[in-house]
Each structure stands twice: as C-alpha cells, then as structure tokens.
Measured scan of single mutants.
Amino acid sequence: ATNIVGKVKWYNSTKNFGFIEQDNGGKDVFVHKSAVDAAGLHSLEEGQDVIFDLEEKQGKAYAVNLRIK
C-alpha cells in the first residue's frame, strides 16, 4: 500500500523504532530508524502527521518512504 496517512503514536530514538497510527483505522505500523534516516529526519515526534508506504516482510508490516505531511 502507498501514500498512507497517519500520526506518530510514539518513537524511541534510543531504541531506534516506534509506531505510526494509521488514520484509516488499520493496525499500528512499525517504523525503524532506517526509514527515519532515509527521510532525512533525525527523529519523529509523538502526534506528528506523516505519509508512508507499507511493506511486509516475514508477515510483519512496516513503514517505508516516510515523509512529513
């Protein structure tokens, strides 16, 4: 899925991951530091509006192509 809109539920910059809540009511999506770095960001803030693509690997969904809304 592409261009999914959501809000950062939480992001832990020490542990380098967090979760994004989808605006469409879907399951929360894992986001890793690598996606944050690829977006040219240092971190994510709770409540921040983002747009992302959804990829699945080994049955787990995660956010890629992250951008600030």
Score class of each variant (00 low, 15 high):
G18P: 00
N65E: 05
N3I: 03
Q48I: 10
D23N: 09
G47N: 09
G47W: 06
R67F: 05
K7A: 12
G25W: 12
V29I: 15
Q22E: 06
L54V: 15
G6Y: 01
N65Q: 05
K27D: 08
L66M: 05
Q58V: 12
Y62S: 09
F30R: 02
W10D: 02
K60C: 04
G59W: 06
I20G: 00
N24R: 13
G25A: 08
A1D: 10
S34E: 08
S13D: 11
K69R: 14
G40V: 05
V64A: 10
E55P: 02
S34F: 14
T2F: 11
D28E: 09
A1G: 09
V5Y: 11
K69S: 07
G40Q: 11
K33S: 11
I20F: 07
V5I: 14
Y11P: 01
G25N: 12
K9S: 05
T14W: 10
E45T: 12
N3V: 05
A39N: 06
D49E: 12
W10F: 09
D28H: 10
F52V: 04
G26S: 08
G26I: 07
H42Q: 09
G47V: 03
T2S: 15
D23C: 04
Q22P: 15
F30L: 05
T14N: 13
S34D: 06
A61C: 04
D37C: 04
N12W: 10
V5N: 15
A61Q: 13
Q58M: 08
A39R: 02
Y62I: 07
G25T: 14
N65K: 10
E46M: 09
L54C: 04
K69T: 12
F52W: 02
N16D: 05
K60T: 08
K15M: 15
F52C: 03
D37N: 12
S43I: 11
R67M: 06
S43C: 04
Q48D: 15
K9G: 03
V64N: 07
I20P: 00
V36F: 06
A63W: 00
L44M: 05
V29A: 06
V31I: 08
D37Y: 12
S43D: 09
A35F: 10
Q48R: 06
S43V: 13
F52A: 03
I51Y: 07
E55L: 07
L41Q: 10
F19T: 02
G47H: 12
H42R: 10
F52T: 02
V5G: 14
N65C: 03
R67T: 07
V36T: 03
S13R: 13
Q48C: 04
G47Q: 07
F19S: 02
W10N: 03
L44Q: 01
F30I: 04
A61F: 14
T2Y: 10
Q58L: 12
S43F: 14
N24Y: 10
A63K: 00
D49V: 14
K57V: 15
S13Y: 14
Q22L: 10
F52Y: 13
V36N: 02
K27A: 09
D49G: 13
L66V: 14
A63V: 09
S34C: 04
Q22N: 09
Y11S: 01
D28S: 06
N16W: 10
D49K: 14
K15F: 10
E56Q: 13
D53Q: 08
V5C: 04
G26W: 10
Y62E: 06
T14S: 11
K27Y: 11
D37M: 13
G40P: 02
F30P: 03
S34G: 12
V29P: 00
V8E: 00
E45Y: 07
V50I: 14
K7H: 15
I51C: 04
K9H: 04
S13Q: 15
F52S: 01
T14L: 15
K69W: 07
S34K: 14
K60I: 10
E56L: 15
G6V: 01
G40W: 14
T14G: 15
K27C: 04
N3Y: 06
G47A: 08
A39D: 02
Q22C: 04
G18I: 01
E56P: 05
Q58Y: 13
D23R: 08
R67H: 06
H42N: 09
E55C: 04
V36R: 02
E55T: 10
H32A: 06
A61D: 13
E21P: 01
A63G: 07
H42G: 10
L54H: 07
G26V: 09
L54G: 02
G47E: 06
K57C: 04
I4M: 15
G26E: 12
V29Y: 05
N3G: 10
G40D: 08
K33E: 04
G59P: 03
F30K: 02
N16M: 10
N16I: 02
Q22S: 15
Q22M: 13
G26R: 10
G40T: 05
Y62Q: 09
L54T: 14
L41I: 15
V36C: 03
